[in-house]
Design a protein around this nucleic acid. Structure first.
Lengths: 334, 334
DNA sequence: TTGAAAGCGGTACCAA
DNA sequence: TTGGTACCGCTTTCAA
């Protein structure tokens, strides 16, 4: 059996109340007993059971992290930065990949509530705001990251996706492209990116002509390939493609290669996220960079301050994307 | 306040003991009361508190996953497959990135023990076997994945790393390479790969000549670049490089490009893992494939059977690697 | 078939 | 400064 507070109390010849006070540094305990108890704790290698204290209303120091897919580099990098910041303050993360499936999202939330997590960090891809609102109402700390939630009463660390899309389009337009394809999954942030994208077109008196539709596939690389082929087969194929994440962009480049087009000579490609993939892809990917490290840190900080009750008002922090020019885009040559 | 078992009992006009029995489907309860209780549970949306039942010795349905770095695609893909299998059986994963740092490993283990996780799945990179042995002695389920542990009494799902290294070398030798560099971090699995590698050389009467040393950097891409430059600057530069993971291989290819060498014409490169990176890198990476999905599934299955007590004897499952030929290696032309 | 009550391992209030 | 004890929400034994 594991050592309990009773063992410590008995060994130190004090009451469990005293031991508890020593552990939590509460109340007034004489230096002498304090030292004695601490010695026994070390000697017995006593580790307080967190389940028990959680039952009494203390924090579990565990946070639920809901993301679409930990195998997607953007999310694994984000998860890592969140984890690191949490670790500094003694928090652990329960990781849940939802695959954009509502049923999974709900299941995980219910389950983690039963496990008394201290709060939820929810990454983009979550379309199911009802469930989140429910958490807020129940006064369970929730923070959203990498997805904006305007008109919604939740702490949020987001990227200015609109600006991201605008940046991407502007870059391409500047290079002379007029017919630009877009590939994206139908989630909130991408709708924003698309809005920004169209805004830039409009400002340049360009029209959004491609035969666009949101992808549904889970496998982004394949989806990128597929859409690329579709675009390239069309009567007026685009000369550039804006892929709403780096994985998709990788698919575009591969798809282009398969039909003998080289990037960027025949087709310019711009991605989104600036994950490790962007540096590995050939040609190195021009992409819109999200400040992943920062987003992770900020959202964890918000989470912690919600848990400790330091901050009561809700807030929305919007970080700005930036263009990272590499080699996958070039001037349109006709 | 959350609904508790007392609320349900009161509402259903029965005792909490009865409610508990209904929930857990234990004891003998009349159909009538059972139905009544179930109705109330639904009506009140009652969710049993797992902390409380964990205190009484029930499982927490939570497993600690210790990996070097979730941002490394190999580990994030592995984590994902473990998570998926766990999810099928209602388990959650607490994710801990250790960065190969012992201090972190120990800290996480202690912390997760306090949180009463049902078991630990530990991925390669863990050199600290003492701590694991401790867990085994305390009868806490532990399983090791992606790292062998011969002579060690732990359930393991491993890859035959020796064979992996052998396969890599054999492939290169077959292509005519005689002077082959190796890049690896000093962890158990890599030592095995190196052993297999040397074995193949020996069988072909070749000597291991390069000025090899283990890398220490955390950033694998940079490490790959650095070692590549070092190899290429040597008096007798190798004509091929075996990188012990795909990330490293990406660095090798980049490093080669930087000094104007093209892959595979001037330098053949073979990786290890076969992560998503291998398909994205240009040229597509020839690599030794680990059956990641399978490893994840198998290790979770072992974990679950340990938890449920179905399997008492320890076992070691070794999966076999295979060569995936893509475009980063070619015949030596001199 | 049902329920009273004794824990599980802590926390916190109140008395001593 | 210390300790007794009620309680957190659930499981389980034993009697009724």
């Amino acid at each position: 059996m594991r050592t309990t507070i009773y063992d410590v109390a008995k060994e130190a010849k004090v009451s469990i109340a005293t031991v508890s006070k020593v552990i939590n540094n509460k109340g007034h305990i004489s230096e002498k007993t304090k030292r004695k108890v601490q010695e026994v704790i070390v000697a017995l290698n006593y580790q307080p059971n967190m389940m028990a204290s959680a039952l009494m209303g203390k924090r579990t120091k565990t946070i639920g992290l809901l993301i679409p897919d930990i195998a997607n580099p953007f999310f694994s990098e984000l998860a890592r930065s969140i984890e690191d910041r949490g670790h500094e303050f003694g928090y652990n993360l329960v990781m849940c990949s939802t695959d954009y499936i509502q049923e999974k999202e709900n299941k995980y939330i219910t389950l983690l509530k039963r496990k008394s997590v201290d709060g939820f960090i929810i990454a983009s891809g979550f379309e199911n705001l009802d469930k989140i609102e429910e958490l807020v109402k129940e006064d369970i700390p929730v923070a959203i990251v990498a997805r904006d939630s305007p008109m919604f009463y939740v702490n949020t660390v987001a990227l200015d996706d609109f600006m991201g899309g605008y940046l991407a389009a502007s870059h391409l337009i500047e290079l002379g492209h007029k017919n630009i394809g877009v590939i994206a999954r139908d989630v909130w942030s991408n709708r924003e990116r698309l809005r920004g994208f169209k805004q830039a077109l409009e400002e340049n008196k360009l029209e959004f002509t491609p035969d666009f539709e949101f992808i549904k596939e889970i496998n982004h690389i394949e989806a990128g390939k597929y859409m690329t082929r579709k675009y390239l087969d069309a009567p007026h194929p685009p000369t550039a493609i804006f892929a709403c994440n780096d994985l998709l962009a990788a698919g575009v480049i591969q798809g282009g290669k398969e039909v003998g087009m080289s990037v960027p000579e025949d087709l310019s490609v711009i991605g989104f996220d600036n994950t490790i993939l962007a540096t590995i892809i050939e040609p190195p990917l021009t992409t819109i960079s999200q400040p992943i490290q920062n987003m992770g840190k900020e959202v964890m900080d918000i989470m912690i301050s919600m848990i400790t009750g330091e901050v009561k008002e809700k807030r929305r922090l919007t970080l700005l994307p930036s263009l990272v020019e590499r080699k996958s885009t070039s001037k349109l040559t006709v």
